[in-house]
Amino acid sequence: MTPRLSLSAIRHSFGSTLVLNGIDLSIAPGEMVALMGESGSGKTTIGRIVAGFIVPEEGVVCLDGDRVAGDGRFVAPERRGVGVVPQEGALFPHLSVAANVGFGLARGGERARRVEECLDLVGLAGFEQRRPHELSGGQRQRVAVARALAPEPRLVVLDEPYSGLDASLRRTVSDQVATALRAAGATALLITHDASEAFRTADRVAFLDAGRLVQVGEPSDLYGRPTDLRAALAAGTAALVPAQRCGASLVCSFGELPLDAVGYVSDIPSGVLVLRPWQVDVTVDASGGVEVLDARPDTDTLWLSVDVAGERVDLGTGRSAQDVENLGAGTRVRVMLTAAAAYLPRSPLD
C-alpha cells in the first residue's frame, strides 16, 4: 500500500547548524504517528517541511506517492491537503468559531453542515457563534482541530498542540482530540516532547535525537525494548546499572539476568542495563549485601541510593512512597532484578 506520507533522506540546516540529518519516515493511511524528541531536536522543522512551510535542502517528501518536495519540485502549502494544528491553536481572532472551522471549505450549503459535523466531532456543538476570545484554552485547541479536519485533509500535523494548557487539562484535551481524530479516520503526525501524550495517542512513536530518528516503533517497543538510551529515558522512568555481557547472560552488581529477560540487547561487551521500576524488586533483609544510603519518593517510584560493594548506584523501584520509612539510610536490603528493558552502550549520556 502506498504510504500516506513518506519522508526520504531529509536533510536541513539553519545557517551553519544541521538540524535534520537524514530523516526517513512513512505513515500509512489512517495511522497516527507521534514524533517525540527534546526541544531543539528538530521535530517542529519536520512538521513544517511536511506542511510546506520550509523547503528541505535535501531529500524527498511524498504524499500518497506524489512528490511534493524534493528533486526540484515544490508544491505550495495550500495545494498539499495537509491540515495544521499549531501551538495555542492560532484561531483567526476576527472570525467566529463557525467561520474558523469553515475557513478552508468552499462556500455553499455543504459548508454549514460540515462545520456542524466537525464541531460535533470535537464535542463543541453549539459553539458556532462564539468568538475565539470567549473560549477556554482547551476549547480553542479543539476548534483548531475541527478547523484542520474540516476540509478532509490527507494528513494533519499537530505541533505541540497542548503545550499551552495546564497539566491537569492536557490529558483530557489530548484524549478528546485523539478520539476525534480516530473518529474522523484521520492520518496524523503528532509532534510532542511528552511521552505520555505520545503513548496514549499514537499507533507508532518516532524518537528524534539531534536530527536523527533513533527509534521508530510501537509505544510498547520504546518502553519495553528501547534501542537508544535517550529514547529509553524519554519513554519512562528507568534506572541505569552498569553491566557486562557474559555468555548467555548479563552480569551486574545485583546478579545476573539471562539474555531472554532483556527487551533489547546491544552487541557490546560492556554497557548499562535499562531497568523499569517494576523490574527492580527490593526487600528488607538484614543479611543482604546492599546498604541503603538514601531514599527519596518520586510520584510513582521510590528512588534508592544504595551501596553495593563500595559502589553507589541509584535505583528506581516500584515500591510505594510509604516504604521510605522502612527503607531509611542504613537499612540492609536484597535487590532482585526480574527483567530489563534493554542493554545499551552508555556512551550517549557520557
Binding site: 506542511a51 510546506g52 512551510f53 505550495a76 502549502p77 495550500e78 495545494r79 498539499r80 491537503g81 495537509v82 491540515g83 495544521v84 499549531p86 501551538q87 492560532a90 484561531l91 483567526f92 481572532p93 476576527h94 475557513f103 478552508g104 483548531a144 478547523r147 484542520a148 474540516a150 476540509p151 485533509p153
Partner: peptide
C-alpha cells in the same frame, strides 16, 4: 502562524491577505 494555517487550508497568498491580514 495564522497565515500558515490558512495556507494549509488551501488559501493562496492573495486570499490570505484579503481574508486574514487586511480584516485584522
Amino acid at each position: 502562524t495564522q497565515e500558515e494555517v490558512a495556507r494549509s487550508l488551501g488559501k493562496g497568498p492573495r486570499e490570505v491577505f484579503l481574508r486574514l491580514t487586511l480584516p485584522q
